[in-house]
Amino acid sequence: MKAMLRLASFVAVGCAAAAVHFCVVVLLVSRAGAMPLAANVGGWLVAFAVSFLGQWGLTFRSRAAPVWRSISRFFAVSLLGFLANESAYALLLHFSSMSYDVLLAAVLVGVALMTYLLSSRWAFRGNPAG
Rank of each mutant, 00 (worst) to 15 (best):
M1Y: 11
L5H: 05
R6M: 11
R6D: 10
L7T: 13
L7K: 10
A8E: 07
S9T: 08
F10P: 03
V11I: 15
A12N: 07
V13Q: 07
C15Y: 00
A16M: 13
A16G: 09
A16N: 05
A17D: 02
A18G: 09
A19R: 03
F22A: 09
C23G: 04
C23I: 03
V24G: 02
V25G: 01
L27H: 01
L27A: 13
L27Q: 05
L28A: 11
V29T: 12
R31N: 02
A32I: 00
G33Y: 08
A34R: 06
A34D: 08
M35V: 08
M35L: 12
P36H: 09
P36R: 10
P36M: 10
A38R: 09
V41G: 03
G42P: 03
W44F: 14
F48P: 01
A49H: 07
V50I: 14
V50L: 07
F52D: 03
Q55H: 15
Q55A: 07
L58R: 08
L58N: 11
T59I: 12
F60P: 03
F60R: 05
R61K: 15
R63T: 02
W68F: 10
W68D: 11
R69S: 04
S70Q: 11
I71S: 09
I71D: 02
I71W: 04
S72K: 07
R73H: 06
F74S: 01
F75G: 02
A76G: 08
V77S: 07
V77K: 04
V77M: 05
V77R: 04
V77A: 07
S78Y: 12
L79R: 05
F82C: 04
F82M: 04
F82Q: 02
L83N: 10
A84I: 13
A84V: 13
E86T: 13
E86H: 13
E86F: 12
S87V: 11
S87C: 11
A90Y: 14
A90H: 13
A90W: 15
A90T: 14
L91M: 12
H94L: 11
H94K: 12
F95Q: 07
F95Y: 14
S96W: 09
S97N: 14
S97E: 15
M98V: 06
S99I: 04
S99P: 02
Y100D: 14
Y100L: 09
Y100P: 15
D101G: 03
D101Q: 15
V102P: 00
L104Q: 12
V107W: 01
V107E: 02
V109H: 00
V111M: 04
V111E: 07
V111R: 05
V111I: 15
A112M: 08
A112Y: 06
A112N: 03
A112K: 00
M114C: 00
T115R: 05
T115F: 01
T115G: 00
Y116G: 00
L117E: 06
S119D: 04
S120T: 05
S120P: 00
S120G: 13
R121M: 10
W122A: 10
W122V: 11
A123K: 02
R125I: 01
R125C: 10
R125N: 11
N127E: 15
N127Q: 13
N127Y: 06
P128F: 02
G130Y: 11
G130W: 14
G130L: 13
